[in-house]
Write a protein that binds this DNA or RNA. Structure first.
Lengths: 150, 150
DNA sequence: GATGAAACGTTGTGGTT
DNA sequence: AACCACAACGTTTCATC
């Protein structure tokens, strides 16, 4: 694996994945570095692309999205390219992957209710055949990336 | 929809979803509030559960995870409960949903390489029948939640 | 990486509408 | 109830070592 991340940097990544707003001073206290040393390590990891950003996690239900779904799409011949260009514009789609297998695309979507779902699926049918799975619960939610054993 | 989130709070949510480390002073400058006013609104949204936390986004590939996959599981009779208890312990699983349909579970997993994938699937077969889709690309990545139109 | 100083941000109190 | 102003405190940042 990538050996450029030492143990101190892994501990910084752990802290920031748990609470991205934690101060560098506080992280420094936990891992035994001064605030400028933490800041410098964070800056370097940002520049290398290891740290890609910091995001607030927002409740889906409390923002009016009572329904979540996993939707797979098997794109029609010649329709995949236009779908890939269009999908970033859909507010409902919070994650979208191109995958191997019979279906080309899998999406995680947030929706207000079943009427919203119906309208959303209607917008997709021009691109391909969809299959919808309603999300019943979120068993693991954005688990942190850990030093992969090895 | 939930009408408790006014326009200023939506703008705060936008800022923090884009950069969770942005200072309240800076957010206040953008939206025309003083730092204490922003801090108070953020605190209230945290207490209400609208803001659920702040997470650093870490590169999968640069942390040694060259392979990502979507794996669905159709749990064997009586095996779902033990799977749901076990899956949060798997470092490879960064998201896991219980869903409707023929398969009960869909997971997003990060893996070092194909050998890691093979070993990972071996650990799942006691719980059910799996189907693996390799992720080719990430078309939409953790898109922010927006004020749902209407 | 550490230190120390200056600039900046956060947080609490009190007061206004 | 939500906001502002001000002050005390903590944090970040930059120079220097």
């Amino acid at each position: 694996m990538n050996t450029k991340i030492d143990d101190l940097n892994w501990r910084i990544l752990e802290c920031l994945q748990e609470n991205a707003r934690e101060s560098f001073a506080n992280i420094g206290r936990k891992i035994g570095l001064t605030p400028p040393a933490v800041a410098e390590r964070v800056k370097k990891m940002e520049d290398l692309g290891i740290l890609q950003g910091y995001k607030a996690m927002v409740s889906h239900s409390l923002t009016g999205h009572q329904l979540k779904a996993i939707i797979t799409l098997r794109a029609f011949m010649g329709k995949l390219k236009s779908f890939l260009e269009m999908v970033p514009l859909l507010d409902e789609v919070i994650n979208c992957y191109r995958i191997t297998g019979n279906e080309n695309i899998v999406m995680e979507v947030v929706l207000k209710d079943q009427f919203h779902l119906e309208k959303f699926i209607d917008r997709l049918i021009q691109y391909g055949e969809t299959r919808t799975h309603i999300i019943l619960s979120n068993v693991v939610k954005n688990a942190p990336i850990r030093k992969s054993g090895g």
